[in-house]
Computed example of a mutant assay.
Amino acid sequence: MSIKHYLQTAYQEVRLTSDAELSAVQNLNGTLQPDRDNLILVYGGSFNPPHRGHIDVLLSGLRPEVAAVAVVILPSEDFHLRHKVANSHPEFFLHMKRRADIWGAIPSVPKGRVWVWTSTWYPFKPFTEAMVRLAKADGFNLAFSHMIGPDNLNTKDPLNNLPYKLPRILVTNKARHVIAQFLPDGKPVMWPGFGEWTRCIRSYGDEEDVVLWTCAGVDDKDKRGYYLQFAESSPVDINSTNLRAALIQSQRLDEVSLNQLSTKALLELLSPVL
């Protein structure tokens, strides 16, 4: 069954029916399978602005080791971003809609497997619950999982990833590697409330050395952890704060001028880091 059918129905159930919201899923071509967990990754973040490190994380989630049906990009709310950048170049501020527009226009993002959440955060959790329920009624197991980089991992409570909790989380070190999150034997460090990590041995014939580790909750078997380990992380480690400072200095930007630019102009501005 096409994932698009359930997405459209769930959108309508939580009263998200604008052309922008429904058109965001039109190009998706994934299908749900009855004999396995169908995983949808939720990639949330400020993305002020999106850059190559963000894209590397996103594309790593589409690796065959993960076998995700789709990824949804969830830009943070404006109020959350204002708090985050209050003491760090607050004049570089892209509104949520502009950040969503940029993600939707980046050529390297595969539109058949990725869509962008263009609405406010608040209906997102009931939307995920509706998706799971609708799919289950037709015999499909659907699971939503956060996807984050290791620098955003809360090792004391991995599933506590604001603004909401999901029963699963995937950490990928494609864009950045944190040595402290691994033991000397190569396994990820155990998380509180989760069992031992298991290495999923799969070979897909490419040149990258990639291992997917999985673990399950001790008291709640619906909880899952995934660690997608790349032997070599991306050689380009972009610091968002430094990036914003450089753009402000070189382009004389502020919030008003930034948000008056067209999406095409923003892509051209960001092209060196995309």
Rank of each mutant, 00 (worst) to 15 (best):
S2L: 12
Y6V: 03
Y6N: 05
A10T: 07
Q12N: 14
Q12I: 05
V14F: 00
R15Q: 14
L16M: 15
D19F: 12
A20K: 10
S23Y: 12
S23V: 11
S23E: 11
A24M: 08
V25A: 08
Q26H: 14
G30P: 07
L32V: 05
D35P: 03
I40K: 01
I40L: 13
Y43H: 09
G44T: 13
S46P: 06
P49T: 07
P49D: 07
D56P: 01
V66M: 07
A68Q: 01
A68I: 00
A68L: 01
V69K: 15
A70C: 13
A70S: 15
V71F: 05
V72W: 03
L74F: 09
S76I: 06
L81P: 15
R82M: 05
A86N: 13
A86M: 12
E91H: 11
F92R: 07
H95D: 06
H95N: 08
K97E: 11
A100P: 03
I102L: 15
I106R: 01
V114Q: 00
V116T: 12
T118I: 15
W121I: 14
W121P: 07
F124M: 04
F124W: 02
F124Y: 03
F127C: 02
F127A: 00
A130F: 06
R133W: 10
R133S: 14
A135V: 00
F140N: 02
F140Q: 04
N141R: 08
L142G: 06
A143M: 11
A143S: 12
S145I: 00
S145F: 01
G149I: 02
P150I: 03
L159M: 09
N161D: 09
N161R: 14
Y164C: 15
L166C: 11
L170C: 00
K174C: 01
A175T: 04
A175G: 10
R176A: 06
I179V: 11
I179L: 09
A180D: 09
A180E: 13
Q181N: 09
F182H: 13
F182C: 15
D185Y: 09
K187R: 15
P188R: 06
P188W: 07
V189M: 04
F194G: 10
G195W: 07
R199V: 09
R199I: 08
R199K: 12
I201E: 12
I201D: 12
R202S: 07
S203Q: 09
Y204L: 05
D206T: 14
D206Y: 08
E208I: 04
D209T: 08
V210M: 01
V211Q: 10
C215P: 04
D219M: 15
D220T: 08
D220G: 04
K221D: 13
D222E: 14
R224F: 05
Y226N: 02
A231Q: 01
E232F: 03
E232C: 05
V236I: 06
L243D: 13
A246N: 02
L247M: 08
I248T: 12
Q249L: 11
L253R: 10
L253C: 10
E255V: 10
L258D: 06
L258W: 04
Q260T: 01
L261P: 07
K264A: 06
L266C: 04
L270F: 08
L270P: 04
L274I: 14
